[in-house]
């Protein structure tokens, strides 16, 4: 079975079946550790309420962190890159055609020069 399901990648090997079996063993170990945990938890009681430094819990719809707030740090750090890249996406068909024509001309020069 090992040979049948092993992918030879040239420099290495990859057998997902063995990986899945390994993941299953790791999962069983994790479950065993979980079963040793706190047993006093009661569903539906105040134990489920989040502790927000003593402040009341806001409405459910306000708790969700929306997409626009995610990866702010990454985007800010890459601001210089995005300030150049995003404006190229003008949405203008004329620009799309110009890029296409420009690349065709560039390919022609490269192919003819290096033939």
């Amino acid at each position: 079975m090992t040979v049948l399901f092993t992918l030879d990648t040239g420099a290495g090997l990859w057998n997902p079946v063995i990986w899945v079996l390994g993941a299953a063993v790791a999962g069983i170990i994790a479950l065993l550790l979980y079963s040793l945990g706190e047993r006093g938890y009661k569903k539906g009681t105040a134990q489920e309420d989040p502790f927000l430094s003593g402040n009341p819990e806001p409405e459910k719809g306000l708790v969700h962190v929306r997409s626009g707030n995610l990866y702010w740090g990454f985007l800010d750090a890459m601001d210089g890159y995005y300030r150049r890249l995003v404006p190229l996406h003008t949405g203008d068909l004329h620009d799309y055609v110009l890029w296409y024509m420009g690349m065709t001309a560039l390919f022609l020069v490269v192919v003819v020069v290096f033939r």
Binding site: K60, G61, S67, L70, Y71, F74
Partner: peptide, 17 residues
């Protein structure tokens, strides 16, 4: 990273009203 953001944005969190 990008799909973690999408997964969180669409499926995670409490049921929105």
């Amino acid at each position: 990273a990008s799909f973690v953001k999408v997964f969180h944005s669409i499926f995670m969190g409490p049921v929105l009203p």
